[in-house]
Simulated assay, not measured.
Amino acid sequence: MNPNVFLFAGEDSGDIHGEVLVSLLASQNKDDELWGVGGKRMRKAGLKALFPTESFMVMGFQDVLFNLPSLIKKFYKIRNAILKKSPKAVILIDYPEFNLLLAKSLRKKGFKGKIVQMICPTVWAWRKSRIKTLEKCFDLLLTIYPFEKELFKNSSLKVEYIGNPVAEKIANHPYLTHWNLNFELNLNQPLLSLFPGSRTKEIERNFIKQLESAKLLLDSFPDLQLAISVARPNLLTKMKQILKKSPLSKKRRKIAFIPQELSYELMRSTTAAIAKCGTVTLELALHGCPTLVTYETSFLNRFLAKYLFRLKLPHFSIANILAEKTIFPEFIRNPENPVCYANTLRPYLTQTLERQKILIECQKVKEMLKIENGKERLLKAITPFIT
């Protein structure tokens, strides 16, 4: 078996978690080759990319169907590369359906190395039967939320809660001072920030309604500033095209486009936000930023989720799931119009009781995920499986 470790992250949230892992492995095992599928964070940390994460980022059931030929082609190329190089460990991050199929296929083809899944599939939400597949195919499951390990108490699979890498990353983030000056933002005035997503399809479906909602709020608050988070540089052109078509383009107000590397500075400075459902909503909660959560999707995706997959979750954003109640209002099952979004967000822009309640609940989520020496726990859990 060769001294190499394969890692796979098929979406942006997985790249966030994978960056921590790649950095740890690179510092501890300098002779190991770290290769696989990763985004710009993992690649910067030292991963040699067979494919970039960006080529796997599809949104919803419909987009998966449309991109199926490409995904199948990549699937077999990845599987065959793993079988050829025979790494001592395969570490799969999030992206559960693809990862389960890959692990099953590797075992079927006789792969003898260790297979680790980092981030538990949402067996607590649907298809609990996947626990049996996890037991058969994986040697270790690393969970990042405190309630997940309990779900496997009767399972033979080794499960370790390692703390939440996002929470630890935020806790140790070296915030820049005066970052706002280049964007002409006054941090003594209220700031509304938009987080429309990290995929092109997400931008196309979420951004226009976020902009329309922002215009209504800018009309109501003369001193309100607007910032827009740009998750990836190649999305900026598309975002500016959509902005030109929106009513907001007619307002003579400065709009700041903030690059991903300054997203935590932006979150810490934001008065209130509108964000596409995903890891970003947890990041906003950990920064104590009142947020309205949206997820615009196609009719087909909504139909499949409701009637075929029978998703009946009480909440979708992780802050609400952890709190077991609504901290951030969600407009996902039945997306509303921009007026509704603006009216919901309006109380969060001033020192209202609604805003104070959210800040208290965000602090509770932060305490829930607080854990000492998270990186050490991760390294301790995974070292026996990569040596």
Rank of each mutant, 00 (worst) to 15 (best):
V116M: 07
G197Y: 06
L7T: 08
L102N: 05
Y295L: 11
K30H: 12
F56G: 00
E97W: 02
N182Y: 08
N80V: 15
F331P: 00
R232I: 07
S27L: 06
P190Q: 12
F331A: 07
L218S: 05
E54K: 10
I371R: 09
F303A: 12
V22Q: 01
L68M: 14
L142N: 00
E184K: 15
D63H: 11
R310N: 11
K77V: 15
V365K: 00
I170Y: 09
M57A: 11
N180A: 08
P338I: 12
L311W: 02
R43M: 14
M368G: 05
A273L: 03
L191A: 03
M42N: 08
G163R: 01
A227P: 00
A227I: 04
R252C: 12
R232K: 14
R333I: 07
L100V: 10
T326H: 06
I72R: 10
E261V: 14
N29T: 12
L141D: 00
R302A: 09
I382L: 07
R43E: 15
H178A: 15
M42G: 07
G39M: 03
P329H: 07
V58D: 01
L47Y: 00
A214L: 10
L226M: 06
F257H: 02
P196K: 00
L71Q: 10
K40M: 10
V90L: 05
D63Q: 09
E372A: 15
N29V: 13
M59R: 09
K240I: 15
H173Y: 15
A9C: 10
W35P: 05
E324Y: 02
C137R: 01
E19F: 05
N334E: 09
L92A: 06
K158W: 01
M1F: 08
G36V: 05
V58S: 07
N67T: 06
K209P: 00
N4M: 14
Y307A: 09
L181F: 05
I332W: 05
H178M: 12
